[in-house]
Design a binder for these strands. Sequence first.
DNA 1: TGTACATCAGTGAACGCGCGTTCACTGATGTAC
DNA 2: TGTACATCAGTGAACGCGCGTTCACTGATGTAC
Lengths: 191, 191
Amino acid sequence: MSRSRATYHHGNLQAALEDAALELLTTQPAAKISLREVARRAGVSHNAPYNHFGDRAALLHALGVRAMRELLEAQERAVEGESDPIARVRALGGAYVDYAADHPQAFALVFDPEYCPPGHPDADMAPLITRNEELLAAEVAALVQQPGFTGRDPEALAAGMWATVHGMAVLVMLGHLPREAAQPALDALIA
Amino acid sequence: MSRSRATYHHGNLQAALEDAALELLTTQPAAKISLREVARRAGVSHNAPYNHFGDRAALLHALGVRAMRELLEAQERAVEGESDPIARVRALGGAYVDYAADHPQAFALVFDPEYCPPGHPDADMAPLITRNEELLAAEVAALVQQPGFTGRDPEALAAGMWATVHGMAVLVMLGHLPREAAQPALDALIA
DNA sequence: TGTACATCAGTGAACGCGCGTTCACTGATGTAC
DNA sequence: TGTACATCAGTGAACGCGCGTTCACTGATGTAC
């Protein structure tokens, strides 16, 4: 299938547009991404995207869902490799921070209320959020059985862990914290 | 001094512009604030701001510096009221989270690399950052003398504390974490 | 104390820009018979 | 197997928009003499 400008029925323009936008997202924040530039990157006229996305916000929301899925799956993969509860929690946090460090703008998009409003997740986003909450809750439930962690409120601890890891992710992403400093900082905290 | 549109020599237009922008910042993120709207709010023509700020970015940067100063001073005030090292650290974190909850867009501006680039703080911003780092370092230095905290690496612990508190601030600001959940979460973490 | 004049701090008009979106269109595809 | 036709997925032209910024200007202020 040709990618020439005159080609009708691109075949997979929806995915191609998301790919192009994701590539732009490595350079610029979501707010600066224009539909026209995305279309240009995909080699398509500036209003072809309207056949696949209602408007600019819909494209960026779809991108946010995709990023959230990647973030979640990275955490799931990281946890799989470990059996010790403390090691699993460390791996979970490490994957979260790594994702933010490797895909800063994609990570930011997931938490951008303009495109991924919290409190009103749609049918695509909601199950991902639930899965992530359950993943964290399960790991913390195992953690509080460990010596040194017994008796802590699992819910409060889960919130604390999330905040810590999220804070590290944001600070690393913005360049305020060296990436290598994240793991020692987490260890010092839950020593 | 009249505030009518025809008034020359406003008297304190620089401060008035910052005030107007700060008010807009309660409603919208920094990226959406336009120089023209700020000027309108200040009751002045759309290019009067150029007499006081080089361009739009300079105004927003000045706003960021102002917000950083408020954030720092809120922490300093909070710590003053406590003597127990653990209570001081809790107060420090509480003030940080409260500032973000009360002034979400101003808080976000302080960490917006578009207007307040990290790594290259200017002469106004740099001393505030230094003061904040010293404040945190001093409190952590006292904390690691306390039973249960001895032997921890102060630098790593300071980074961990900052990340935790920053994460809470961001999550509360975005509505992902109820404000009341922040303090219990911090307590569960450093129990 | 007046006066000439430089400077400061405003003004409105105008510019070009890229954007999101709408419109009427057309070529390609798939399906019913 | 052909054919008629609905639908799908593109096209280029055009729109209005608010914006940042520049320009030439003018009234108010402060200062040297």
